[in-house]
Design a protein around this nucleic acid. Structure first.
Lengths: 241, 241
DNA sequence: CGGGCTCGTCAAGGCCGCGTCAAGATCGCC
DNA sequence: GGCGATCTTGACGCGGCCTTGACGAGCCCG
Protein backbone atom coordinates (compact mmCIF):
# COMPACT_ATOMS: atom_id res chain seq x y z
CA UNK A 1 0.00 0.00 0.00
CA UNK A 2 2.76 2.39 0.94
CA UNK A 3 4.71 1.55 -2.17
CA UNK A 4 1.81 2.00 -4.49
CA UNK A 5 1.19 5.45 -3.12
CA UNK A 6 3.70 7.34 -5.19
CA UNK A 7 3.15 5.18 -8.23
CA UNK A 8 -0.57 5.63 -8.03
CA UNK A 9 -0.53 9.40 -7.80
CA UNK A 10 2.17 9.87 -10.36
CA UNK A 11 0.68 7.92 -13.17
CA UNK A 12 -1.65 10.52 -14.54
CA UNK A 13 -3.27 13.82 -13.70
CA UNK A 14 -6.63 13.51 -12.02
CA UNK A 15 -8.88 15.28 -14.50
CA UNK A 16 -8.62 14.50 -18.16
CA UNK A 17 -5.65 16.19 -19.77
CA UNK A 18 -5.10 19.42 -17.86
CA UNK A 19 -3.82 22.32 -19.89
CA UNK A 20 -0.48 23.91 -18.97
CA UNK A 21 0.93 27.22 -20.16
CA UNK A 22 4.74 27.32 -20.04
CA UNK A 23 6.28 30.79 -20.15
CA UNK A 24 10.04 31.12 -20.48
CA UNK A 25 12.38 33.08 -22.73
CA UNK A 26 14.70 30.11 -23.19
CA UNK A 27 13.29 28.01 -26.05
CA UNK A 28 15.27 25.03 -24.80
CA UNK A 29 13.55 24.95 -21.46
CA UNK A 30 10.12 25.40 -23.00
CA UNK A 31 10.87 22.55 -25.36
CA UNK A 32 12.11 20.27 -22.61
CA UNK A 33 9.11 20.95 -20.38
CA UNK A 34 6.69 20.57 -23.25
CA UNK A 35 8.03 17.15 -24.14
CA UNK A 36 8.00 16.01 -20.55
CA UNK A 37 4.49 17.26 -19.92
CA UNK A 38 3.00 15.96 -23.14
CA UNK A 39 4.39 12.52 -22.31
CA UNK A 40 2.38 12.74 -19.10
CA UNK A 41 -0.85 13.59 -20.86
CA UNK A 42 -0.91 17.30 -20.31
CA UNK A 43 -1.90 19.66 -23.07
CA UNK A 44 0.83 22.27 -23.35
CA UNK A 45 1.06 25.78 -24.76
CA UNK A 46 4.29 27.75 -24.79
CA UNK A 47 5.07 31.46 -24.68
CA UNK A 48 8.39 33.31 -24.80
CA UNK A 49 7.37 36.70 -23.47
CA UNK A 50 4.90 38.30 -21.11
CA UNK A 51 2.55 39.75 -23.67
CA UNK A 52 2.09 36.42 -25.40
CA UNK A 53 1.67 34.75 -22.03
CA UNK A 54 -1.19 37.03 -20.99
CA UNK A 55 -2.85 36.62 -24.35
CA UNK A 56 -2.57 32.82 -24.32
CA UNK A 57 -3.74 32.61 -20.73
CA UNK A 58 -6.97 34.31 -21.74
CA UNK A 59 -7.39 32.39 -24.97
CA UNK A 60 -6.53 28.86 -23.87
CA UNK A 61 -7.65 28.99 -20.24
CA UNK A 62 -4.87 26.77 -18.84
CA UNK A 63 -5.33 24.84 -15.61
CA UNK A 64 -1.91 25.94 -14.42
CA UNK A 65 0.75 28.41 -15.55
CA UNK A 66 4.50 27.83 -15.27
CA UNK A 67 6.17 31.23 -15.35
CA UNK A 68 9.79 32.26 -15.59
CA UNK A 69 10.44 35.66 -14.06
CA UNK A 70 13.16 36.73 -16.50
CA UNK A 71 11.18 37.71 -19.55
CA UNK A 72 12.40 40.06 -22.29
CA UNK A 73 9.42 42.40 -22.46
CA UNK A 74 7.99 42.78 -18.96
CA UNK A 75 8.80 42.22 -15.34
CA UNK A 76 7.63 38.82 -14.16
CA UNK A 77 5.77 40.38 -11.25
CA UNK A 78 3.74 42.44 -13.71
CA UNK A 79 2.73 39.29 -15.51
CA UNK A 80 1.51 37.79 -12.25
CA UNK A 81 -0.44 40.92 -11.43
CA UNK A 82 -1.88 41.00 -14.93
CA UNK A 83 -3.13 37.46 -14.50
CA UNK A 84 -4.46 37.94 -10.98
CA UNK A 85 -6.62 40.77 -12.23
CA UNK A 86 -9.06 38.30 -13.67
CA UNK A 87 -8.12 34.73 -12.80
CA UNK A 88 -7.10 32.55 -9.88
CA UNK A 89 -5.37 29.97 -12.05
CA UNK A 90 -2.41 28.45 -10.17
CA UNK A 91 0.93 30.06 -11.06
CA UNK A 92 4.21 28.24 -10.47
CA UNK A 93 7.16 30.57 -10.75
CA UNK A 94 10.48 29.36 -12.12
CA UNK A 95 13.53 31.46 -11.47
CA UNK A 96 17.29 31.29 -11.39
CA UNK A 97 17.41 33.85 -8.60
CA UNK A 98 17.61 32.50 -5.12
CA UNK A 99 17.23 35.68 -3.13
CA UNK A 100 14.52 35.69 -0.55
CA UNK A 101 13.10 39.02 -1.71
CA UNK A 102 12.42 37.70 -5.17
CA UNK A 103 10.46 34.81 -3.80
CA UNK A 104 8.53 36.92 -1.35
CA UNK A 105 7.58 39.45 -4.00
CA UNK A 106 6.45 36.80 -6.44
CA UNK A 107 4.41 34.90 -3.86
CA UNK A 108 2.83 38.06 -2.49
CA UNK A 109 1.96 39.21 -5.99
CA UNK A 110 -0.17 36.12 -6.28
CA UNK A 111 2.07 33.23 -7.30
CA UNK A 112 1.26 29.86 -5.78
CA UNK A 113 4.68 28.27 -5.74
CA UNK A 114 8.29 29.17 -6.44
CA UNK A 115 10.83 26.73 -7.84
CA UNK A 116 14.47 27.74 -8.27
CA UNK A 117 16.49 26.62 -11.26
CA UNK A 118 18.03 24.20 -11.69
CA UNK A 119 15.26 21.97 -10.43
CA UNK A 120 14.55 18.25 -10.37
CA UNK A 121 11.89 17.18 -12.82
CA UNK A 122 10.25 14.80 -10.34
CA UNK A 123 9.80 17.48 -7.74
CA UNK A 124 8.59 19.98 -10.30
CA UNK A 125 5.99 17.56 -11.62
CA UNK A 126 4.82 16.80 -8.08
CA UNK A 127 4.36 20.51 -7.39
CA UNK A 128 2.50 20.82 -10.66
CA UNK A 129 0.17 17.99 -9.71
CA UNK A 130 -0.41 19.59 -6.33
CA UNK A 131 -1.33 22.88 -7.97
CA UNK A 132 -3.71 21.27 -10.45
CA UNK A 133 -5.33 19.06 -7.82
CA UNK A 134 -5.92 22.00 -5.53
CA UNK A 135 -7.54 24.10 -8.21
CA UNK A 136 -9.72 21.34 -9.58
CA UNK A 137 -12.99 22.05 -7.75
CA UNK A 138 -12.87 25.82 -8.14
CA UNK A 139 -12.58 25.37 -11.85
CA UNK A 140 -15.38 22.84 -12.04
CA UNK A 141 -18.00 25.27 -10.80
CA UNK A 142 -18.14 27.23 -14.01
CA UNK A 143 -19.07 24.31 -16.18
CA UNK A 144 -22.82 24.87 -16.22
CA UNK A 145 -24.37 25.78 -19.53
CA UNK A 146 -27.91 27.14 -19.59
CA UNK A 147 -30.47 27.60 -22.32
CA UNK A 148 -33.98 28.95 -21.98
CA UNK A 149 -35.30 25.40 -21.82
CA UNK A 150 -32.73 23.20 -20.12
CA UNK A 151 -29.47 23.22 -18.15
CA UNK A 152 -26.35 21.11 -18.65
CA UNK A 153 -23.94 20.65 -15.76
CA UNK A 154 -20.75 19.25 -17.25
CA UNK A 155 -19.06 18.63 -13.90
CA UNK A 156 -21.95 16.83 -12.26
CA UNK A 157 -22.94 15.20 -15.52
CA UNK A 158 -26.51 16.29 -14.91
CA UNK A 159 -29.20 17.76 -17.08
CA UNK A 160 -32.09 19.74 -15.68
CA UNK A 161 -35.32 20.99 -17.16
CA UNK A 162 -38.12 22.87 -15.44
CA UNK A 163 -36.48 22.26 -12.09
CA UNK A 164 -36.41 18.49 -12.41
CA UNK A 165 -33.56 16.26 -13.52
CA UNK A 166 -33.68 14.73 -16.97
CA UNK A 167 -32.48 11.14 -17.23
CA UNK A 168 -30.08 10.51 -20.07
CA UNK A 169 -28.54 7.21 -21.14
CA UNK A 170 -24.73 7.05 -21.30
CA UNK A 171 -24.62 7.48 -25.05
CA UNK A 172 -27.14 10.27 -25.02
CA UNK A 173 -25.05 12.09 -22.43
CA UNK A 174 -21.83 11.54 -24.33
CA UNK A 175 -23.26 12.97 -27.52
CA UNK A 176 -24.69 15.95 -25.68
CA UNK A 177 -21.44 16.53 -23.84
CA UNK A 178 -19.41 16.74 -27.02
CA UNK A 179 -21.86 19.18 -28.53
CA UNK A 180 -22.05 21.38 -25.45
CA UNK A 181 -18.28 21.49 -25.03
CA UNK A 182 -18.19 22.86 -28.56
CA UNK A 183 -21.07 25.24 -27.97
CA UNK A 184 -21.77 27.44 -30.96
CA UNK A 185 -19.36 25.52 -33.15
CA UNK A 186 -20.24 22.96 -35.77
CA UNK A 187 -19.35 19.38 -34.85
CA UNK A 188 -18.83 17.05 -37.79
CA UNK A 189 -20.63 13.74 -37.96
CA UNK A 190 -17.30 11.93 -38.16
CA UNK A 191 -16.05 13.93 -35.20
CA UNK A 192 -19.05 12.89 -33.12
CA UNK A 193 -18.83 9.26 -34.14
CA UNK A 194 -15.13 9.12 -33.33
CA UNK A 195 -15.59 10.78 -29.98
CA UNK A 196 -18.56 8.75 -28.80
CA UNK A 197 -18.29 5.38 -30.54
CA UNK A 198 -14.55 5.25 -31.13
CA UNK A 199 -12.22 5.73 -34.08
CA UNK A 200 -13.47 2.59 -35.82
CA UNK A 201 -16.78 4.31 -36.54
CA UNK A 202 -17.23 7.02 -39.10
CA UNK A 203 -20.06 6.15 -41.44
CA UNK A 204 -22.81 5.10 -39.07
CA UNK A 205 -24.69 8.36 -39.35
CA UNK A 206 -27.91 6.58 -38.51
CA UNK A 207 -26.70 6.30 -34.91
CA UNK A 208 -26.52 10.05 -34.78
CA UNK A 209 -29.99 10.48 -36.21
CA UNK A 210 -31.44 8.20 -33.57
CA UNK A 211 -29.66 9.85 -30.65
CA UNK A 212 -30.20 13.39 -31.81
CA UNK A 213 -33.90 12.59 -32.04
CA UNK A 214 -33.92 11.20 -28.50
CA UNK A 215 -32.06 14.18 -27.14
CA UNK A 216 -34.39 16.59 -28.85
CA UNK A 217 -37.40 14.72 -27.51
CA UNK A 218 -36.04 15.01 -23.99
CA UNK A 219 -34.68 18.53 -24.15
CA UNK A 220 -36.28 20.65 -26.83
CA UNK A 221 -39.53 22.46 -26.22
CA UNK A 222 -40.72 21.52 -29.70
CA UNK A 223 -38.67 18.55 -30.94
CA UNK A 224 -39.92 19.04 -34.49
CA UNK A 225 -38.39 22.52 -34.59
CA UNK A 226 -35.20 22.28 -32.53
CA UNK A 227 -33.75 25.56 -31.35
CA UNK A 228 -30.64 24.31 -29.55
CA UNK A 229 -29.70 20.97 -31.08
CA UNK A 230 -29.41 22.05 -34.65
CA UNK A 231 -28.73 20.03 -37.78
CA UNK A 232 -26.33 21.40 -40.33
CA UNK A 233 -27.43 19.40 -43.36
CA UNK A 234 -24.67 17.42 -44.97
CA UNK A 235 -22.11 18.39 -42.35
CA UNK A 236 -22.99 17.70 -38.76
CA UNK A 237 -24.67 19.13 -35.68
CA UNK A 238 -24.33 22.20 -33.54
CA UNK A 239 -25.40 23.15 -30.04
CA UNK A 240 -26.66 26.70 -29.76
CA UNK A 241 -27.60 28.06 -26.36
CA UNK B 1 9.33 50.17 -5.83
CA UNK B 2 10.12 46.56 -5.24
CA UNK B 3 10.62 47.24 -1.59
CA UNK B 4 7.29 48.90 -1.01
CA UNK B 5 5.47 46.14 -2.73
CA UNK B 6 6.73 43.52 -0.36
CA UNK B 7 6.17 45.74 2.64
CA UNK B 8 2.57 46.38 1.68
CA UNK B 9 1.68 42.76 1.28
CA UNK B 10 3.60 41.53 4.27
CA UNK B 11 2.08 43.68 6.91
CA UNK B 12 -0.91 41.53 7.73
CA UNK B 13 -2.71 38.39 6.64
CA UNK B 14 -5.66 38.92 4.36
CA UNK B 15 -8.49 37.53 6.45
CA UNK B 16 -8.90 38.40 10.11
CA UNK B 17 -6.45 36.46 12.25
CA UNK B 18 -6.06 33.16 10.45
CA UNK B 19 -5.42 30.13 12.63
CA UNK B 20 -2.25 28.10 12.15
CA UNK B 21 -1.44 24.65 13.47
CA UNK B 22 2.29 24.04 13.84
CA UNK B 23 3.34 20.39 14.11
CA UNK B 24 6.97 19.59 14.94
CA UNK B 25 8.71 17.37 17.46
CA UNK B 26 11.31 20.03 18.27
CA UNK B 27 9.85 22.32 20.92
CA UNK B 28 12.34 25.01 19.97
CA UNK B 29 11.09 25.28 16.43
CA UNK B 30 7.48 25.29 17.52
CA UNK B 31 8.26 28.06 19.97
CA UNK B 32 10.15 30.11 17.41
CA UNK B 33 7.41 29.82 14.81
CA UNK B 34 4.71 30.53 17.35
CA UNK B 35 6.36 33.76 18.43
CA UNK B 36 6.95 34.85 14.87
CA UNK B 37 3.43 34.08 13.80
CA UNK B 38 1.72 35.61 16.82
CA UNK B 39 3.66 38.82 16.16
CA UNK B 40 2.06 38.84 12.73
CA UNK B 41 -1.45 38.43 14.04
CA UNK B 42 -1.93 34.75 13.48
CA UNK B 43 -3.58 32.54 16.07
CA UNK B 44 -1.30 29.59 16.66
CA UNK B 45 -1.73 26.07 18.05
CA UNK B 46 1.19 23.70 18.49
CA UNK B 47 1.49 19.92 18.44
CA UNK B 48 4.48 17.66 18.97
CA UNK B 49 3.21 14.41 17.49
CA UNK B 50 0.87 13.14 14.80
CA UNK B 51 -1.97 12.01 17.03
CA UNK B 52 -2.20 15.40 18.73
CA UNK B 53 -1.97 17.08 15.36
CA UNK B 54 -4.93 15.19 13.93
CA UNK B 55 -6.95 15.84 17.05
CA UNK B 56 -6.18 19.57 17.10
CA UNK B 57 -6.81 19.88 13.38
CA UNK B 58 -10.36 18.62 13.94
CA UNK B 59 -10.92 20.60 17.12
CA UNK B 60 -9.47 24.01 16.17
CA UNK B 61 -10.10 23.97 12.42
CA UNK B 62 -6.93 25.83 11.41
CA UNK B 63 -6.71 27.76 8.16
CA UNK B 64 -3.32 26.23 7.44
CA UNK B 65 -1.18 23.45 8.88
CA UNK B 66 2.62 23.52 9.10
CA UNK B 67 3.80 19.94 9.36
CA UNK B 68 7.19 18.44 10.06
CA UNK B 69 7.57 14.97 8.58
CA UNK B 70 9.79 13.57 11.33
CA UNK B 71 7.32 12.89 14.10
CA UNK B 72 7.84 10.43 16.92
CA UNK B 73 4.59 8.50 16.73
CA UNK B 74 3.60 8.25 13.07
CA UNK B 75 4.90 8.66 9.56
CA UNK B 76 4.36 12.18 8.28
CA UNK B 77 2.69 10.86 5.16
CA UNK B 78 0.12 9.12 7.32
CA UNK B 79 -0.69 12.41 9.00
CA UNK B 80 -1.26 14.01 5.61
CA UNK B 81 -3.52 11.17 4.55
CA UNK B 82 -5.39 11.32 7.83
CA UNK B 83 -6.06 15.00 7.25
CA UNK B 84 -6.94 14.66 3.61
CA UNK B 85 -9.58 12.13 4.55
CA UNK B 86 -11.85 14.94 5.64
CA UNK B 87 -10.37 18.33 4.90
CA UNK B 88 -8.67 20.30 2.17
CA UNK B 89 -6.93 22.68 4.55
CA UNK B 90 -3.57 23.78 3.10
CA UNK B 91 -0.62 21.74 4.42
CA UNK B 92 2.91 23.11 4.28
CA UNK B 93 5.46 20.40 4.94
CA UNK B 94 8.69 21.19 6.74
CA UNK B 95 11.50 18.70 6.48
CA UNK B 96 15.22 18.37 6.89
CA UNK B 97 15.34 15.77 4.15
CA UNK B 98 16.16 17.04 0.72
CA UNK B 99 15.64 13.92 -1.34
CA UNK B 100 13.30 14.27 -4.27
CA UNK B 101 11.31 11.17 -3.34
CA UNK B 102 10.37 12.58 0.04
CA UNK B 103 9.01 15.70 -1.57
CA UNK B 104 7.16 13.85 -4.27
CA UNK B 105 5.52 11.47 -1.81
CA UNK B 106 4.45 14.27 0.51
CA UNK B 107 3.06 16.41 -2.29
CA UNK B 108 1.25 13.50 -3.90
CA UNK B 109 -0.22 12.49 -0.55
CA UNK B 110 -1.95 15.86 -0.54
CA UNK B 111 0.54 18.42 0.80
CA UNK B 112 0.40 21.87 -0.77
CA UNK B 113 3.99 22.98 -0.34
CA UNK B 114 7.31 21.60 0.82
CA UNK B 115 9.97 23.69 2.54
CA UNK B 116 13.35 22.22 3.44
CA UNK B 117 15.08 23.10 6.68
CA UNK B 118 16.85 25.29 7.32
CA UNK B 119 14.60 27.88 5.73
CA UNK B 120 14.39 31.64 5.58
CA UNK B 121 11.62 33.08 7.70
CA UNK B 122 10.66 35.64 5.05
CA UNK B 123 10.20 33.02 2.39
CA UNK B 124 8.33 30.74 4.77
CA UNK B 125 5.93 33.48 5.73
CA UNK B 126 5.35 34.35 2.09
CA UNK B 127 4.50 30.73 1.32
CA UNK B 128 2.19 30.70 4.32
CA UNK B 129 0.41 33.80 3.08
CA UNK B 130 0.07 32.27 -0.36
CA UNK B 131 -1.49 29.14 1.12
CA UNK B 132 -3.96 31.07 3.27
CA UNK B 133 -4.90 33.45 0.49
CA UNK B 134 -5.54 30.61 -1.91
CA UNK B 135 -7.71 28.68 0.50
CA UNK B 136 -9.85 31.61 1.58
CA UNK B 137 -12.91 31.02 -0.61
CA UNK B 138 -12.56 27.24 -0.74
CA UNK B 139 -13.35 27.16 2.95
CA UNK B 140 -17.03 26.72 2.25
CA UNK B 141 -16.91 22.94 2.35
CA UNK B 142 -19.14 21.18 4.81
CA UNK B 143 -17.93 18.48 7.11
CA UNK B 144 -21.32 17.17 8.12
CA UNK B 145 -23.74 16.27 5.38
CA UNK B 146 -27.35 15.53 6.27
CA UNK B 147 -30.16 13.91 4.40
CA UNK B 148 -33.67 13.31 5.60
CA UNK B 149 -32.68 9.77 6.55
CA UNK B 150 -29.06 9.75 7.66
CA UNK B 151 -26.08 11.94 8.54
CA UNK B 152 -22.46 11.68 7.40
CA UNK B 153 -19.72 13.29 9.47
CA UNK B 154 -16.63 13.41 7.28
CA UNK B 155 -14.34 14.62 10.05
CA UNK B 156 -15.35 12.05 12.65
CA UNK B 157 -15.79 9.36 10.03
CA UNK B 158 -19.17 8.50 11.49
CA UNK B 159 -22.60 7.87 10.07
CA UNK B 160 -25.79 8.42 12.06
CA UNK B 161 -29.36 7.40 11.48
CA UNK B 162 -32.35 7.96 13.72
CA UNK B 163 -30.06 9.20 16.47
CA UNK B 164 -27.93 6.07 16.58
CA UNK B 165 -24.61 5.38 14.91
CA UNK B 166 -24.52 3.14 11.87
CA UNK B 167 -21.64 0.68 11.68
CA UNK B 168 -19.85 0.68 8.34
CA UNK B 169 -16.95 -1.52 7.28
CA UNK B 170 -13.80 0.30 6.11
CA UNK B 171 -14.57 -0.27 2.46
CA UNK B 172 -18.18 0.75 2.85
CA UNK B 173 -17.05 3.97 4.48
CA UNK B 174 -14.48 4.65 1.80
CA UNK B 175 -17.03 4.29 -0.96
CA UNK B 176 -19.52 6.48 0.86
CA UNK B 177 -16.88 9.09 1.58
CA UNK B 178 -15.94 9.49 -2.06
CA UNK B 179 -19.58 9.83 -3.05
CA UNK B 180 -20.43 12.33 -0.32
CA UNK B 181 -17.38 14.45 -1.03
CA UNK B 182 -18.69 14.72 -4.59
CA UNK B 183 -22.23 15.37 -3.45
CA UNK B 184 -24.54 16.04 -6.37
CA UNK B 185 -21.89 15.12 -8.90
CA UNK B 186 -21.75 11.90 -10.82
CA UNK B 187 -18.84 9.69 -9.81
CA UNK B 188 -17.67 7.32 -12.52
CA UNK B 189 -17.29 3.63 -11.80
CA UNK B 190 -13.62 3.82 -12.75
CA UNK B 191 -13.19 6.86 -10.53
CA UNK B 192 -14.65 5.00 -7.56
CA UNK B 193 -12.62 1.86 -8.17
CA UNK B 194 -9.40 3.85 -8.49
CA UNK B 195 -10.08 5.83 -5.37
CA UNK B 196 -11.13 2.94 -3.15
CA UNK B 197 -9.35 -0.13 -4.50
CA UNK B 198 -6.35 1.50 -6.17
CA UNK B 199 -5.33 2.32 -9.73
CA UNK B 200 -4.89 -1.34 -10.67
CA UNK B 201 -8.66 -1.78 -10.54
CA UNK B 202 -10.99 -0.42 -13.14
CA UNK B 203 -13.21 -3.17 -14.43
CA UNK B 204 -14.39 -4.84 -11.24
CA UNK B 205 -17.80 -3.22 -11.30
CA UNK B 206 -19.24 -6.14 -9.35
CA UNK B 207 -17.44 -4.80 -6.25
CA UNK B 208 -19.39 -1.61 -6.62
CA UNK B 209 -22.68 -3.42 -7.02
CA UNK B 210 -22.10 -5.34 -3.82
CA UNK B 211 -21.06 -2.35 -1.75
CA UNK B 212 -23.68 -0.01 -3.09
CA UNK B 213 -26.26 -2.61 -2.14
CA UNK B 214 -24.85 -2.86 1.37
CA UNK B 215 -24.75 0.90 1.81
CA UNK B 216 -28.30 1.23 0.60
CA UNK B 217 -29.44 -1.51 2.94
CA UNK B 218 -27.87 0.34 5.86
CA UNK B 219 -28.77 3.89 4.91
CA UNK B 220 -31.74 4.13 2.59
CA UNK B 221 -35.26 4.11 3.92
CA UNK B 222 -36.34 1.86 1.07
CA UNK B 223 -33.26 0.15 -0.37
CA UNK B 224 -35.21 -1.00 -3.41
CA UNK B 225 -35.93 2.62 -4.35
CA UNK B 226 -32.84 4.57 -3.28
CA UNK B 227 -33.28 8.30 -2.99
CA UNK B 228 -29.74 9.33 -2.04
CA UNK B 229 -27.39 6.68 -3.39
CA UNK B 230 -28.42 6.78 -6.99
CA UNK B 231 -27.31 4.66 -9.93
CA UNK B 232 -26.67 6.31 -13.24
CA UNK B 233 -26.88 3.28 -15.50
CA UNK B 234 -23.79 2.71 -17.55
CA UNK B 235 -21.92 5.62 -16.02
CA UNK B 236 -21.58 5.49 -12.26
CA UNK B 237 -23.17 6.55 -9.01
CA UNK B 238 -24.24 9.78 -7.42
CA UNK B 239 -24.95 10.90 -3.88
CA UNK B 240 -27.92 13.21 -3.71
CA UNK B 241 -28.84 14.75 -0.40
C1' DC C 1 -40.74 16.62 -62.90
C1' DG C 2 -38.53 12.62 -60.97
C1' DG C 3 -34.62 10.23 -58.86
C1' DG C 4 -31.36 9.92 -55.30
C1' DC C 5 -29.60 11.37 -51.11
C1' DT C 6 -30.03 12.74 -46.37
C1' DC C 7 -32.56 13.27 -42.31
C1' DG C 8 -36.22 12.14 -38.80
C1' DT C 9 -39.18 8.64 -36.75
C1' DC C 10 -40.56 4.28 -34.96
C1' DA C 11 -40.37 -0.33 -33.26
C1' DA C 12 -38.30 -4.80 -32.35
C1' DG C 13 -34.66 -7.78 -30.86
C1' DG C 14 -30.38 -9.01 -28.70
C1' DC C 15 -27.21 -8.07 -25.34
C1' DC C 16 -25.15 -5.95 -21.52
C1' DG C 17 -25.26 -4.01 -16.95
C1' DC C 18 -27.30 -3.82 -12.51
C1' DG C 19 -29.23 -5.77 -8.23
C1' DT C 20 -29.47 -9.70 -5.38
C1' DC C 21 -28.00 -13.64 -2.85
C1' DA C 22 -24.88 -16.80 -0.99
C1' DA C 23 -20.73 -19.28 -0.47
C1' DG C 24 -15.74 -19.35 -0.33
C1' DA C 25 -11.35 -16.88 0.79
C1' DT C 26 -8.87 -13.82 3.60
C1' DC C 27 -7.75 -10.93 7.27
C1' DG C 28 -7.31 -9.62 12.02
C1' DC C 29 -8.04 -10.16 16.79
C1' DC C 30 -8.13 -12.74 20.92
C1' DG D 1 -4.80 -21.77 16.49
C1' DG D 2 -9.61 -20.60 16.28
C1' DC D 3 -13.27 -17.52 15.52
C1' DG D 4 -15.73 -13.57 13.63
C1' DA D 5 -15.91 -9.93 10.51
C1' DT D 6 -14.86 -8.42 6.06
C1' DC D 7 -13.72 -8.86 1.35
C1' DT D 8 -13.95 -11.41 -2.95
C1' DT D 9 -16.13 -14.20 -6.37
C1' DG D 10 -19.68 -16.53 -8.94
C1' DA D 11 -24.43 -17.34 -10.67
C1' DC D 12 -28.91 -15.74 -12.09
C1' DG D 13 -32.89 -12.96 -13.59
C1' DC D 14 -34.61 -8.83 -15.26
C1' DG D 15 -34.94 -4.31 -17.08
C1' DG D 16 -33.11 -1.07 -20.01
C1' DC D 17 -29.92 0.40 -23.55
C1' DC D 18 -27.82 -0.06 -28.04
C1' DT D 19 -28.27 -1.59 -32.48
C1' DT D 20 -30.60 -2.29 -36.67
C1' DG D 21 -33.86 -2.09 -40.34
C1' DA D 22 -37.81 -0.07 -42.65
C1' DC D 23 -40.37 3.88 -44.06
C1' DG D 24 -41.66 8.61 -45.26
C1' DA D 25 -40.57 13.50 -45.91
C1' DG D 26 -37.76 17.19 -47.60
C1' DC D 27 -34.15 18.92 -50.58
C1' DC D 28 -30.91 19.33 -54.36
C1' DC D 29 -29.85 18.44 -58.86
C1' DG D 30 -30.22 16.45 -63.12
Amino acid sequence: MTGSRAAAAQQEPAGRMPRVLVVDDEPQLVRALTINLRARKYRVDGAHDGATALQLAAARRPDVIVLDLGLPDMDGIEVIEGLRGWTRVPIIVLSARHTSDEKVDALDAGADDYVTKPFGMDEFLARLRAAVRRAAPADAEELVVRTDTFTVDLAAKKVGRDGADVRLTPTEWHVLEVLVRNAGRLVTQVQLLHEVWGPAYGTETNYLRVYMAQLRRKLERDPAYPRHLITEPGMGYRFER
